[in-house]
Design a binder for these strands. Sequence first.
DNA 1: CGATCTTACGGGATTCGTAAACATA
DNA 2: TATGTTTACGAATCCCGTAAGATCG
Lengths: 312, 312
Amino acid sequence: MQMNLSTRQLRAFVALAELRNFTRAAVACHLSQSAFSSLIRTLEDDLGLRLFDRSTRHVDLTVEGREFALSAQRVLLEMDTALGQLRERAALERGKASLALLPSLAAGWLPAVLAGYRAQHPGIEVEVFDILSEPCIERVRNGQADFAIAATRAETPELRAEPFHTDEFHLVAHSGHALLALPEVKPRDLLPFDFVHLSRNTSVRQYLEAATLPLQMRTLLEVDQLATVMGMVRAGLGISVVPALALFHFQQTGIATRLLKWPQLRRAIYLVRRRDRSLSLAAQSLCDWIMARRPVASEAAAPVAASRKRID
Amino acid sequence: MQMNLSTRQLRAFVALAELRNFTRAAVACHLSQSAFSSLIRTLEDDLGLRLFDRSTRHVDLTVEGREFALSAQRVLLEMDTALGQLRERAALERGKASLALLPSLAAGWLPAVLAGYRAQHPGIEVEVFDILSEPCIERVRNGQADFAIAATRAETPELRAEPFHTDEFHLVAHSGHALLALPEVKPRDLLPFDFVHLSRNTSVRQYLEAATLPLQMRTLLEVDQLATVMGMVRAGLGISVVPALALFHFQQTGIATRLLKWPQLRRAIYLVRRRDRSLSLAAQSLCDWIMARRPVASEAAAPVAASRKRID
DNA sequence: CGATCTTACGGGATTCGTAAACATA
DNA sequence: TATGTTTACGAATCCCGTAAGATCG
C-alpha cells in the first residue's frame, strides 16, 4: 500500500487515456516519447497490472485502466483545487485577517489605511474589533484576533509586543477658554476647571491620572465615549485631555486644542501578537501594511485630519 | 500549476501534521530524519509557502498548512481507495465476467465448473447468457459478453475463435427401440422412424441435416428445447440425435443412447472473443479456468453425468 | 546541556533523451 | 513501407543516509 505515485504519473496516465496515443500524450506532458513510455510502463509495474492494451497502431484502456482513469481524474482535480486554493492564499488573493485595536485608532487612523489595503487585496476578508486595550489583548490571547494594537505592553510567555506608536496628549476646550491664553499649560492649571473624564478602564484615563498625581482634578462627569466628551466640551460644560490619535473627534468649530508637553504624559501603543504561532499570510501582509503606515509622532495630527475627511 | 507532487510527500506532510515531530514522523515514514526534513522543505519550496512553524522544540501547522492538511488527507484517502479497488481487482477479489454459451453447455457442463470458480473467487460476479450460437457471437460483438462458447467459428477482423471442444452425436430412443439392436447405425437407418427435431436455427439441427443430406428424415415435430425432445423420446413418440454435451438430458430410465460414429457428424465448438480489446482480469481468469476444464472428447459423457447430480 | 531540526556531502537509484530495434496495418 | 511503440544506454538529476552544525528550552 505504501506506493509512491506522483502527480506526473497520474497526469501522464490521464493524458494517454484521453489521447490514446503515446506520441501526442508525450508532447502534452513535455516529455520525450521514450521517457513517456517508460513512465507508463513503470506505473503499470507499480500497480501490478496493465492499464492499456497497446499495439503499434492502437492504444486503448483496459477494463481496469478505465476504472483507474476515473479515480485518477478525480484525484487530480482535487489536487489541483487544493493547490489552487493554496496559491490564492500565497498570492494574497484570498484569506482572512483579524485585528483588535483601540476605538480611537479604529475610527481615526485605520479607515484610510484599511481602504488602501483592501484596494490592493480585495479578496482578503478583514475583521476589526474596535475595543479597549484589555479586551484587545484578550482577543489575541484566545485566538479571535491575529494581532492587536493596544496601549498595553503585553510581554508574556504567550505574547510578544513591539512599539507601534507614541501618542501625545492635547488639551481640548471651548474656543476662548481661559487656559488657551496661558503661555504654558501645566497640570495644576487644569484644577480650577470642570473636567470631562473618560471611564477608569480606558488607557487615556489611566495615563492622565498617573501624570497628574497627586493632584485631584475637578470631575464634571465621567463618560465612555470620546464623542460624548467632544459634545460636552463643545457645549462649554468642561475641558478634557485626549491623545493625539483621538483629536479627530475635536476638529470642530467652537473647540480649540493645544498640545501638552508634559514629559510624563505620553501614551505608548504596542502591536501585540502571539509568540507561538506565526500569522497567516493574510494577517502577516495586513500587519506589514499597517506597520508601514503607522502614525508618525511628529505628524500625529496630520494623518488624523486627513482621515477625518473620509469618515465624515 | 504543473507541479510534481508525490504521494510520499503528501504522506510525509500528513504524518508530520499529525505527529508534530520530525523525528517520529520520519520513523513513521521509514525515512531518516534528515531525509524527512528535506522532503518537507522541498514540499514547502514547491508550494511556495511554509506549512509548519518550527523551532527545535516545537512543530505546528501554519494556517495555510492547516488548510492544506485537509486537502491532503482527502486526496490520500481517495488515492488509497482507488489503489485498494485496483488491488482487489488484481487479486481477483472483485470484478465482473460475462460469458455467452450454448444452453446445453450452460446446463450440463458449466454448473460444476462455475461452482469451483465461484468457490475460489467469491467476489467476482459472473453473468451467463445461455443462448444459441448466433446470439452468443452477437453478445461478444456488441460487448455484452466478454467471450462466448458457441458452435460458430467466428473468425472476423473483430473476433477471434479458438477450438474449445469437438462434440460427438448420439442416437436417443426409447429403451428397446429396434435401432438399438442393429450392429451399426447409419444415416439411412433413421429414415423409417418418427424423428423429433430441434428448430432449424440450432447448430444441432444444422449439423444433423448436413450429415444426412440428401436424405429426408421423417419429422414427427420440431421443438425448441432439448428437454422437450427428451420428453417425447421417453414417451416413445420418436427418436432423435443429440450431441454428447446434451446427453445429460437423456440419462433417464426408459431412454437409451448410442454413439453415432459418423465421421462427418462432429460438432466443433469454439471459444470466441474480441480481437481488439483484452479481457478484464476477472474475465481472463474465468476464461483460463474454463479452458483448463473444458470437456475432453473421450470423456464427454462422464462430466455430464457428474454435473447432473448437481443440477437435479 | 540535551533534544531536535537543518545543512553538507558522497553514493546509489531514478529518470531523461538520443538512437536503434521492433511491430503492425 | 510507414507509423508508432519498445528497448538500449550514457548522462543528468534526484533522493537517501551519515555526520556535523545550529538552535531552542
